[in-house]
Design a protein around this nucleic acid. Structure first.
Length: 331
DNA sequence: AATTGATACAACCGCTTTGAG
DNA sequence: GCTCAAAGCGGTTGTATCAAT
């Protein structure tokens, strides 16, 4: 009974990925799509654990990833979502297309935490930090008043980070309503949807703090719709502004990938439509696929190339349709 | 120029959840 | 219904880079 272990861990490579390994992984997933990570290393000719391949793909190689610093808007969303969801990074990441849980987690630990502390906000509870011993301690009455005020804020100002949230909330409510209609056990359904779907009101008005006092001067203000960059330049700028391992920094240059639009703003379908209409090259456009094919199959003779390309193009629609996390799945 | 400390982020580890057998 | 591998997830570590001394 049971299955074979995911990997025997003997002779498996660890540490930073090389451009060659990235190339192999990209090539494999281009052809086969994401399936059965256990088999990926063997089939792709990698001395890596399947888990490692999955992480490398989801956190770094996935084509719909945005790179670079989080925009002010994204930071606000992260803070707000963290207030509601806690350290459930994958849940938070699901609200930020193109961002991974790992990326958000890292950004939280390195940037946002400090900023919140600087502002006198506890990054764990999202409540004002207790006064330092040098400050006058609050009387119980004052604390009660403050708590009362927070409760009022909670009641009076349902969170509205952005229109999408409102839509989501409505959708969640509708979903919850549907659930309750279809389920006899209403109480458990509601509890579950509260837990998983409904965006709860934060313990205090985070956005007020953000809007009034959030220090954003350390972060370049880039609205999501502005993040539409030629791949090569985007990566070179990202790698020049941030430190990353030699193997991972600028890996696209290592791979000598052609220029194309590596990421786009999934939050604005109009922009996507506009880009598609005006002929901007999306990642999985035929142009890209043929370019990448030329790269990845550079050792394939001209006669074989068309055959390989056709085979890959046949596979790609399946891959795109299969992966809901991918951009086109969001349309 | 060398050393040290801080920072950022990719990758790993180990626990939990999911689902196939 | 049980077992166990696969996948998912969050916490932690390792390492490259940069700035300060």
């Amino acid at each position: 009974m049971g299955r074979q272990p995911c990997c025997d861990k003997v002779g498996l490579k660890k540490g930073p990925w090389t451009a060659e390994e990235d190339k192999k992984l990209i090539n494999f997933i281009l052809i086969n799509g994401q399936c059965c990570w256990r088999a990926v290393p063997k089939l792709a000719g990698l001395l890596r654990c399947g888990k490692s391949c999955r992480l490398r793909w989801t956190n770094y190689l996935r084509p719909d990833l945005k790179r670079g610093l989080l925009s002010e808007y994204e930071e606000k969303m992260v803070i707000d979502l963290h207030a509601k969801l806690g350290n459930r990074w994958s849940k938070i990441a699901s609200h930020l297309p193109g961002r991974t849980d790992n990326e958000i987690k890292n950004h939280w630990n390195t940037h946002i935490k400090k900023k919140l502390k600087k502002m006198g906000i506890d990054p764990v509870t999202h409540k004002p930090l207790p006064p330092s011993p040098t400050e006058q301690p609050q009387t119980p009455q004052k604390q009660q008043q403050q708590q009362h005020h927070q409760n009022q804020v909670q009641e009076e100002q349902p969170l509205a980070v952005n229109p999408n949230f409102e839509t989501e909330n409505n959708q969640n409510k509708e979903a919850a309503a549907e659930k309750s209609e279809s389920s006899y056990d209403q109480s458990s359904t509601i509890t579950e949807s509260k837990e998983e779907d409904i965006i709860m009101t934060p313990p205090f008005d985070t956005m007020e703090v953000i809007n009034n006092g959030f220090c954003t001067d350390e972060v370049p203000i880039i609205e999501p719709h502005e993040i539409l960059m030629p791949c090569a330049s985007a990566y070179s700028s990202a790698s020049s502004s941030s430190s990353s391992s030699p193997s991972s920094s600028n890996f696209l240059q290592d791979l000598q990938l052609p220029d194309f639009v590596w990421s786009c703003d999934y939050s604005d379908s109009n922009i996507i439509e506009s880009n598609m209409n005006n002929g901007s090259v999306g990642l999985w456009d035929d142009d890209f696929l043929s370019s990448l094919d030329l790269l990845l199959n550079e050792d394939v003779g001209d006669g074989d190339r068309k055959q390989v390309l056709d085979a890959q193009l046949n596979h790609c629609p399946r891959m795109v349709m299969d992966q809901t996390s991918w951009a086109y799945g969001l349309f």
